[in-house]
């Protein structure tokens, strides 16, 4: 094993590490550097201005502050709703349809449900954006929801859901949840499959109902999976951009009601030509992601239950 080990290691690592350093690590490092300058991005002239960009970030109440607020909302709502629905569906499909002679199994048609629920996960966000933009469209553009509400004689927003300040963010979050639930259903299902059946059977013998089974047996044993799901969804929440870009008026409107941090970085970098400012916001996003991961790893840890 010793003979020629280091040349081998080097030859295998050189290309991947080189490419990764060049196209991933270097741009990230440069972005940090740029965030302390006043570089516009187009010229070669810039000066270091310390933390000015960071200070100005929190004065920008037109784009940055609404974006921070909205991304904050998504960061809370998306994981909570998606995990709750994912757990509920996974439980129903794997364990919920119970008690044919005390055997534990999912409700009927669970295979079909899994296939259907997961489908949005393989669709691109561009497709999902086009699809849902039309679903939310105003009634006179043939929107599905507005048209449906109309058919029942119910009121609906005149300009559709996406052009309405009150509904636009919730509408985007709903689409995010819609596309993510299937993934977490399958994810939690595989975790549930590794819980030994006799635990449930023992629970039933002791007279536990479905609620008790879920909260006393399933949830504690799935804790690690829930934690992983939470990190994944938080990162997705911080990176929301494509749907806002595709669906909302003005890529973040109306009136900043659906601006998100990713979208604002993109706007400053590629349409306003304020590179340094965009980078500063990117750095803030970076540390948000980092602290989320650290927090969840440090405080989310529980005693591991072995079975």
């Amino acid at each position: 094993m010793r003979h020629g080990k280091y040349p081998f290691i080097l030859s295998f690592l050189a290309l991947p590490v080189g490419l990764y350093a060049w196209l991933v690590l270097l741009p990230f490092a440069q972005a940090f550097q740029i965030s302390f300058t006043d570089w516009s991005g187009s010229s070669n002239q810039f000066e270091y201005i310390g933390f000015d960009n960071y200070v100005n970030l929190f004065k920008d109440d037109r784009l940055v502050l609404p974006a921070l607020r909205n991304t904050g909302i998504i960061l809370v709502v998306l994981p909570v709703v998606t995990i709750a629905l994912g757990l509920f569906f996974a439980f129903m499909l794997n364990i919920g349809g119970r008690s044919r002679q005390g055997r534990i199994e999912g409700v009927r048609g669970s295979r079909f449900h899994k296939i259907v629920f997961f489908f949005p996960q393989v669709l691109s966000l561009a497709i999902i954006g086009i699809l849902w933009k039309q679903v939310y469209a105003p009634e006179n553009f043939g929107g599905l929801i507005t048209g449906g509400l109309e058919a029942f004689g119910l009121p609906s927003p005149v300009n559709g859901f996406l052009a309405d300040k009150r509904f636009v963010l919730a509408s985007v979050i709903a689409v995010l949840v819609w596309s993510a639930v299937g993934f977490y259903l399958v994810f939690f299902s595989s975790a549930m499959a590794s819980i030994p059946r006799d635990l449930y059977e023992a629970g039933i013998v002791d007279g536990a109902g479905r609620f008790q089974t879920f909260f006393r047996i399933t949830l504690p044993l799935l804790w690690e999976s829930v934690q992983t799901a939470w990190i994944y969804l938080s990162i997705i929440a911080l990176d929301v951009f494509v749907l806002v870009y595709m669906m909302t008026p003005g890529k973040g409107g109306p009136d900043g009601a659906s601006e998100v941090v990713g979208g604002v970085i993109w706007k400053y970098a590629f349409t306003h030509g304020e590179q340094a400012f965009a980078s500063a916001l990117g750095v803030v996003l970076f540390f948000a992601a980092l602290s989320l991961a650290v927090v969840s790893l440090r405080f989310g840890r529980r005693e591991r239950i072995e079975f």
Binding site: Q30, A31, S279, G282, A293
Partner: peptide, 13 residues
């Protein structure tokens, strides 16, 4: 790298 928000790297890239 799995955690890095890609937005930060876009312009330098």
């Amino acid at each position: 790298g799995m955690m890095f928000p890609v937005f930060l790297a876009l312009f330098p890239l």
